[in-house]
């Protein structure tokens, strides 16, 4: 399986990941190499195998419905690139 430069650009857009034009070919090549590794998986029959999402066969623990957090806006926004009036600012969102 090999990916084209066009495929890479599409995936990069889905991931909102800027990629230098001159690197697209190299990424396509690397990803194709990774996909070649995956071929080995398709050779194994897994028809009756349950997918495994977690190493531990455990159930989600539930938390009591209690407010435990206090307002820390100042501490959180000191590290923000751009804030005003307590809001995070981003380029205009068009709906």
């Amino acid at each position: 399986m090999s990916l084209t430069a066009d495929d890479v650009n599409k995936i990069a857009h889905l991931a909102r990941l800027g990629i230098d034009k001159q690197d697209v070919g190299a990424y396509a090549n690397d990803l194709s190499g990774m996909l070649d590794l995956m071929i080995r998986m398709s050779e194994v029959n897994t028809d009756h195998v349950e997918p495994m999402a977690h190493p531990m066969d455990q159930a989600q623990r539930l938390r009591a419905d209690e407010v435990t957090e206090i307002n820390q806006r100042e501490a959180f926004q000191v590290i923000a690139p751009q804030v005003e009036a307590g809001l995070y600012l981003v380029p205009k969102v068009i709906e």
């Binding site: 419905d65 435990t68 957090e69 806006r73 959180f76």
Partner: peptide, 28 residues
């Protein structure tokens, strides 16, 4: 609920902006 689905921040409507958004809600 009193607190959020995945964090202990309050859910009261109408608070000052970002005063009820904790580290989990902010995706730190």
């Amino acid at each position: 609920t009193r607190s959020k689905i995945f964090s202990g921040a309050a859910t009261v409507y109408g608070a000052e902006p970002n005063t009820q958004a904790c580290a989990v809600d902010l995706g730190l």
